[in-house]
């Protein structure tokens, strides 16, 4: 371990691992450990003493940052700054570009965003939706050792795991559509991501609906039902009435109601965002 020091003001033991192995060892089973990726989410919590951890793990020097490719497989290290994703194809790139501003994106990390708490005002963790849409898997450490699992499974246990990296196969098409973000909010009130994999499967996911990011299986089924030949999607003769109206997505969510957007408003907008994503993917087919 590079440095171990005792924080006298809050009696927090601060650990600075210098490698992935040291980070895994320091995290242990994750009990009573505050993981600090970039710090953009936890620092205000610490400043205002809403968080008073007994141990904190500073990951900056743990060597967990970087984007690598192996064929169509993309692997993104846990502490890669969000800004580094901005140039990636949809839905990942446009979703990343919509988060906060360039100063925050350059400090905030990918895994920090994926592991974001639900927030006091509204759901946050915008990247969850984009990575769900591309069918990403997360490699993580914690009780029982290192394992790789679908993001859906990881999200429900993200407080108990130390994310190490996230991987996905580059989709053949993708799209992201979100509500315009008020200047002073770093996350979108509602967003939908979509991706079509090489075998033609369409995945849709939303963030901002309530809790953390969720897949939209009913909306996906609607697409498959109306377009059974999804693989040839761009070539199926179609009329205006063929397009799914996106309302099936409402069966997949429990809508959040808060000061930024009411549940009523979210229910009105979610189908619109689903339609926009489907239209954009269709046009790029």
């Amino acid at each position: 371990m590079a440095t171990v020091s005792l924080d006298p003001s809050t009696a927090t033991e601060v650990l600075r691992p210098g490698s992935e192995q040291e980070a895994i060892a320091a995290f242990g089973d994750g009990k009573d450990v505050l993981v600090v990726g970039g710090g953009t989410i936890v620092m205000p919590e610490l400043t205002y003493r809403r968080l008073q951890p007994t141990r904190a793990l500073l990951l900056k020097d743990a060597g967990l940052a970087g984007v690598t490719r192996d064929g169509s497989r993309v692997t993104i290290g846990a502490t890669t700054p969000i800004e580094e994703l901005v140039g990636l194809p949809a839905p990942i790139g446009p979703c990343a570009a919509n988060i906060a501003d360039v100063e925050i994106r350059s400090q905030a990390t990918v895994a920090g965003n994926l592991c974001a708490g639900e927030g006091y005002e509204a759901p946050r963790g915008d990247l969850q939706g984009a990575f769900l849409a591309v069918g990403a898997t997360v490699r993580s450490a914690g009780e029982g050792g290192i394992r790789e699992e679908p993001l859906e499974d990881f999200l429900s246990k993200r407080r108990e795991r130390l994310a190490l990296s996230i991987s996905y196969d580059e989709p053949s098409a993708g799209a992201f559509a979100g509500l315009d973000r008020p200047h002073t909010h770093d996350f979108t009130a509602l967003a939908v991501s979509g991706a079509r994999s090489a075998d033609g499967t369409i995945r849709l996911a939303a963030t901002g609906v309530g809790g953390w990011g969720v897949r939209l299986p009913s909306a996906e089924a609607e697409v498959a039902e109306i377009h059974p030949r999804v693989i040839d999607w761009g070539h199926v003769p179609r009329s205006a009435g063929d397009d799914p109206d996106g309302t099936a997505a409402l069966q997949d969510v429990t809508l959040h109601d808060d000061a930024i957007a009411s549940a009523w408003y979210r229910a009105k907008v979610l189908p619109v965002l689903v339609r926009r994503v489907l239209t954009e993917m269709k046009e790029s087919a």
């Binding site: 600090v36 710090g39 500073l58 900056k60 925050i104 400090q107």
Partner: peptide, 13 residues
């Protein structure tokens, strides 16, 4: 040389 919010930056970083 890079602009950062100093309120969000742990001094250890």
């Amino acid at each position: 040389g890079e602009p950062r919010r100093s309120c969000l930056m742990p001094v250890g970083y």
